[in-house]
Design a protein around this nucleic acid. Sequence first.
DNA 1: TTGAAAGCGCTAACAC
DNA 2: GTGTTAGCGCTTTCAA
Lengths: 339, 339
Amino acid sequence: MVTSRDVARLAGVSQSTVSYVMSGRRSISEETRRRVEAAIEQLTYQPNAGARALASQRTQVIGLVIPFAPGVEPSGLLPFIETIASCARAEDHDVILVTADEGSAGLTRLAGRRLCDAIVMMDIGAEDARIPVAASLDVPVILIGVPDDSAGLHCVDVDFDSAGRLAVEEMVAAGHEKVVVIGYAPAVIERNVNYVKRFLGGTASAAVLHGIGHEVVAPDATGREGARGAVRKALEIAGSRPGLILPNSEVQTPHVLQALLDHGLVPGRDVSLVGLCTDAVAETSTPQVTNVSLEPRDVSRRAMSTLFRLLDRRDDPAAELVELVTPRLTRRETTLAVP
Amino acid sequence: MVTSRDVARLAGVSQSTVSYVMSGRRSISEETRRRVEAAIEQLTYQPNAGARALASQRTQVIGLVIPFAPGVEPSGLLPFIETIASCARAEDHDVILVTADEGSAGLTRLAGRRLCDAIVMMDIGAEDARIPVAASLDVPVILIGVPDDSAGLHCVDVDFDSAGRLAVEEMVAAGHEKVVVIGYAPAVIERNVNYVKRFLGGTASAAVLHGIGHEVVAPDATGREGARGAVRKALEIAGSRPGLILPNSEVQTPHVLQALLDHGLVPGRDVSLVGLCTDAVAETSTPQVTNVSLEPRDVSRRAMSTLFRLLDRRDDPAAELVELVTPRLTRRETTLAVP
DNA sequence: TTGAAAGCGCTAACAC
DNA sequence: GTGTTAGCGCTTTCAA
């Protein structure tokens, strides 16, 4: 193994100089820097992560706790993972992965063994048992999602309340007098995640504000049959010119579109449909779905920037604990033109 | 921070005894073990990973290189990640994540900085530029997927050749005289992955063997429209009683089923359809799809067991370099009954 | 069956 | 601007 001593010897400097060249924590003459860098290059030296962590008390690793649901495909988890990994790499950090099935044990291990400098935890339940544990760790923890009580932890999430409001406003603009929200499947409800009530609260209060009707029908399953049933119920309730809002659109969109077509209804002509999904999904459906954006990449980036702010102790105490990413509505083909 | 010295002090033993109690690498009297374990418990001691790695030259971390495709959702990546993480935890190891967009740099970093003891690399191209780099590292590397030249590295994958054969044999059993394979979308072809030719080779040679017709139609896109077009072409080619084989069924299945229904054809009555997908996907479609299993969890488990065999230096040199997991056909609702 | 002590490779005072 | 040196917390000889 090539060590910094080898580099020092080859460059004719002390080991600490090599360290300082790499960290830039003190000024180095141009000549010395050149020689050290040449030696590093020549030996293809890379610092030993364990030794560095031990000496510096910094692992340069971020812990990431992802949901774990064998059988179920938690759609759209990958963009989070990818973005978090990218942001970490941009600051010369790596990502160590822990699955949620470990529960709090994963958290205490990450922190207790000093496997990472900070933790990002996803898929936060409203009353998540891991929150108090996370709050007691001596590494910073960022939540993606907002629990009922964040116990002083930083949270980042989409502003689902605004998302609901935007969707309703689009329906109002399209001239609908009633919106039906095709709610969340039982599996999602069971997970007791906060965004469900936040989104439905957003649609409900916006509907009141604009004086239009508001109903929620919950699919009794995921997949095609669930969507079909929910659409049928929604159409019964809605009467003519229904305005449909579809929260969990990532997976549901194609099924709901198909169900509408089966009823002889063309979205954008006979009904309006506003989805809550990423722009990518909205653009690739046929027809393209008017959507309120749900951008995992934006959320992840915000989380990571907050995290590094905390790590660098540029810890602005004025910073908000809960950061909500404002969604954006993009009108595409599935909403009626303004009458 | 609680260190092993604190534990030693509290238990009234030396630091090395604490270490040996934890590792079990030498015999300890019952009495001493009890005292040490009590102290560990009382102080909630956890060993410092960096220090341990430095002293023992073992990080207890597995590097995992996953594909990176922003925009595209690489369906079915999660089961791999989850299973690999689980298997790692079962051996008290953690997983550090690297995305493929780093290319070879990710590999050299993992090995050079001693961030992990072994590497699992996914999404292997037929002529993957990372293979020679991986082969030159001083940590073991396991590939999930088989490149043209594995450079002596261990590979684990589904036996796509057998998968193709099984699908054709089911069609023969159902009395078809011609099979049409709805091939891979251009995006998959471009990635130049070996399993495409292995699967199509499997169907082709089995068709020859059984003396039945064999055609391949490639969808010109992913998603609904691609599936629709491919099904139309397939039906034109196939004539009556077509037997359709669908390799990339994870994402395509619902679209293909819908396209068939649009043509007034009921799978299992008018046409046969054999998918290549996980049992979970096959079971949850309507109708349930007869499938050749593609079980990421099995593949991942095999990869991890090979990996730990290598790490434990129970390195059986007789072990095969390429391990192919044999798929299994399950007859469900989409194949015709034997006439 | 146990302890003492060296050293893994690095960083960061402290010295000059 | 650079070198010397004392650890970081653990494992593992070596010695008893």
